[in-house]
Simulated scan of single mutants.
Amino acid sequence: MDPLTAAGTFATIVGLLSSYKAERSGTELTEFTSWLKESHYESIANSIERHSLLSKELSALLATNHAILVERLSQLDSRIAHLASEFEGFGNLARLLNSKPMLSKQAVSILKQLVESGAEYFMEYKVYTGKPDEYPLIGGLGGRIKYDDRRFIKDDLESLLSAGLVRLEFGSKGSKKYFVTRAAAEFLQGT
């Protein structure tokens, strides 16, 4: 199969799987192929049924917990849009179609610092003296998150959260803790 056809087939199946999971929570391949046929994608459903390895992989995906699979599809969408935004001619299209914000250079830098430090998380430490807030790294090599533009630090942290690259928890006194996720490490391998 030529690369263009393979990329198109992958995108089509992932897109249809996303649409299916947005509508239904079925976990069986037969439910998915029935939905494809109802939605007038008979040729794709027939291809899936004829291709045993594809059927096996899709069955495994569909058997995944619904919430986890939806989150993975969302992360895949974000990563594809981020990657596409780097290619001439696709950037504007990716920004228009992607529901999640793109990551700024500062957001990617924050993520790299967290992952490369080996820290489990970093905390938000509010500084009320007019100086920038601090974000100490907890565990690993320690240190602090360095950032240049304090106007957009909250926006960058929100982008990382919405992309599933960090997880937010609150300490006993309401302090914010930003934990690294496995998706963050995987995301950075592709950058």
Rank of each mutant, 00 (worst) to 15 (best):
18 S>E: 03
34 S>A: 15
89 G>T: 05
94 A>F: 09
58 L>A: 07
161 L>T: 02
167 R>P: 04
29 L>K: 04
4 L>V: 10
86 E>D: 11
56 K>N: 12
24 R>A: 15
99 S>Y: 11
48 I>L: 10
2 D>E: 15
107 A>F: 00
110 I>D: 02
118 G>Q: 03
162 S>E: 08
150 R>I: 07
129 T>P: 01
15 G>A: 05
115 V>Q: 06
160 L>E: 00
3 P>N: 00
189 Q>I: 09
52 S>C: 11
129 T>L: 00
33 T>H: 07
77 D>T: 11
62 L>Y: 10
186 E>L: 15
76 L>Y: 11
130 G>F: 09
95 R>H: 09
31 E>S: 12
5 T>Y: 10
36 L>G: 04
79 R>H: 03
19 S>E: 14
132 P>S: 01
51 H>M: 15
148 D>L: 07
109 S>G: 14
21 K>Y: 02
187 F>W: 13
6 A>R: 08
92 N>H: 13
150 R>T: 02
38 E>A: 11
87 F>L: 14
173 K>P: 03
163 A>Y: 08
140 G>F: 11
119 A>N: 06
188 L>H: 10
184 A>N: 04
60 A>E: 15
176 K>F: 02
179 F>E: 12
83 L>P: 06
59 S>Y: 03
37 K>F: 04
92 N>T: 13
65 N>R: 11
10 F>Y: 14
16 L>W: 03
103 L>A: 01
41 Y>P: 11
76 L>Q: 08
6 A>I: 07
95 R>S: 05
24 R>T: 08
191 T>K: 08
88 E>G: 11
6 A>M: 04
107 A>G: 08
174 G>T: 02
114 L>W: 04
138 I>K: 13
109 S>H: 11
112 K>D: 12
24 R>K: 07
185 A>W: 04
153 I>S: 03
38 E>K: 13
176 K>M: 11
53 L>T: 14
83 L>M: 14
109 S>E: 08
2 D>C: 12
112 K>W: 09
136 P>R: 02
176 K>C: 06
67 A>S: 14
14 V>R: 10
4 L>C: 10
114 L>Q: 02
38 E>T: 12
107 A>L: 07
128 Y>R: 05
41 Y>D: 11
105 K>E: 14
52 S>M: 06
135 Y>G: 04
184 A>I: 01
121 Y>T: 06
45 A>R: 05
106 Q>L: 05
118 G>E: 07
16 L>D: 01
131 K>E: 15
140 G>E: 01
122 F>D: 03
90 F>Q: 02
151 R>W: 01
136 P>A: 08
111 L>M: 08
110 I>E: 05
160 L>Q: 00
15 G>W: 06
127 V>I: 09
75 Q>P: 05
40 H>N: 15
181 T>V: 09
168 L>F: 03
127 V>R: 09
95 R>I: 10
119 A>P: 06
114 L>R: 01
91 G>D: 04
177 K>C: 03
44 I>Q: 14
43 S>E: 12
108 V>E: 09
175 S>G: 13
102 M>D: 01
78 S>R: 13
160 L>M: 06
25 S>A: 14
129 T>C: 01
65 N>D: 15
52 S>E: 10
46 N>Q: 03
171 G>T: 09
35 W>N: 07
60 A>W: 06
118 G>L: 00
78 S>W: 00
16 L>Q: 15
10 F>T: 13
173 K>S: 10
83 L>W: 14
71 E>M: 00
